[in-house]
Computed example of a mutant assay.
Amino acid sequence: MFDYQESKTYLEPELNGQDAKPEVTIRQVRVEQPDETDAHELDVDERTFQIRLANTEMVRSHASSLIHRMYASRGYTVNNPLQENPHRVTMTISEEDKVIGTITLGIDSPSGLLADEIFKDEVDAYRARGRRVCELTKLAFDPTTRSKTALASLFHIIFIYLRRVQKCTDIFIEVNPRHRRFYERMLGFKKHGPKKMNPRVNAPAYLLCVETDYVEEQIQKMGGTSGHDNAEKSLYPYFFCPISEKQNKAAIDRQLAVLHTDQGNANAVNALAAIYQASRGATSVESLTLSH
């Protein structure tokens, strides 16, 4: 179930310090202090943050706590903590050793997706066409953080994993009706089927879907353009710049090669995320020179 709003996000304690660190140096940037009148809403767009795989019980516990806090604050029922599962991948994003967000990717398998519980007919229609489906669930973000950059970065890294490693063609999400427009407008999701009651959170939900081909097209068109005056009203300008991706192609391909043989390799996932994050803000569409 997705319940993200533009105006609110959600916070959690520090990540497990024993996670393997990627061999990539993250760019350090100057921290802008917020105005006193807005000090409770920290803007992390120009700060350093890290995206990492939640591959230990401790990190999954932190992410579960964050999810529970977010959902409980909205009156939703949350019963099951995150558990190790070969068909689910959870990623976290942290700022100054504090977890500020988490998201879980579910890959289709013989046991199906969580969305099958109430939207099986809709999902089966895609399977019947030979599509490789997946779902994004359990999005939680820091309530004191307003950062489209952080949110887009988390979406972008998990998108790279689901498209390039898992070869998924379609992404499903279940969202509360009041947040449906956000995902349609900001990410291009489309509604599939009627509104139904989601028993996992005891709240109504719509099933939304977007093709990974469409997401890739938007990234190629708008990624890295958020600082432009003509940037579109979308989350895609806050995704990583496709030109910097080309510049770092050799390093990216090395990590993807590892993941193609070992899909749960935390070092490769973390290094891949760090490569992208290191390029954030260091390059721009205008100034980049493609390497040959």
Rank of each mutant, 00 (worst) to 15 (best):
K138R: 14
K138L: 11
K138C: 09
K138N: 10
K138E: 06
K138D: 07
K138H: 08
L139K: 04
A140F: 00
A140M: 01
F141Y: 06
D142M: 03
D142S: 15
P143W: 11
P143N: 13
P143V: 13
P143L: 13
P143T: 10
T144H: 13
T145Y: 03
T145F: 01
T145I: 14
R146H: 13
S147A: 06
S147K: 06
S147C: 05
K148S: 13
T149P: 02
T149E: 01
T149S: 10
T149R: 12
L151I: 14
L151Q: 00
L151T: 10
L151D: 00
L151V: 14
A152G: 03
S153R: 06
S153K: 07
S153D: 01
L154P: 00
F155C: 11
F155Y: 15
F155A: 04
F155V: 14
H156W: 09
H156F: 15
H156D: 11
I157Y: 04
I157T: 08
I157K: 07
I158A: 06
F159K: 03
I160N: 03
I160V: 09
Y161T: 04
L162Y: 05
L162M: 15
L162D: 01
R163N: 04
R163E: 00
R163Q: 06
R164P: 00
V165N: 02
V165C: 02
Q166V: 12
Q166G: 01
K167V: 07
K167S: 12
K167W: 00
K167L: 09
K167G: 02
C168E: 01
T169A: 11
D170Q: 10
D170V: 07
D170C: 06
I171Q: 02
I171F: 04
I171Y: 01
F172W: 02
F172V: 05
E174P: 02
E174L: 08
E174K: 07
E174Q: 12
V175C: 02
V175W: 01
V175H: 01
N176W: 04
N176T: 14
N176Q: 10
N176V: 15
N176H: 15
N176L: 15
P177C: 04
R178C: 11
R178D: 12
R178W: 11
R178I: 14
H179F: 12
H179D: 11
R180C: 09
R180Q: 13
R180Y: 02
R180K: 13
R181Q: 14
R181F: 15
R181W: 10
R181N: 14
R181V: 13
F182V: 15
F182A: 08
F182Y: 15
Y183C: 03
Y183Q: 02
Y183S: 03
E184F: 03
E184L: 05
R185K: 14
R185F: 09
R185W: 07
R185A: 10
R185L: 12
R185Q: 11
M186H: 01
L187R: 03
L187Q: 03
L187F: 12
L187H: 05
L187W: 05
L187A: 12
G188T: 13
G188K: 08
K190H: 10
K190M: 09
K190L: 06
K190S: 10
K190Y: 05
K190Q: 09
K190G: 05
K191F: 07
K191V: 13
K191N: 11
K191S: 12
K191E: 13
H192A: 10
G193H: 08
G193E: 04
G193N: 05
G193Q: 05
G193F: 05
G193K: 07
P194F: 12
P194W: 03
P194H: 11
P194N: 13
P194C: 08
P194S: 14
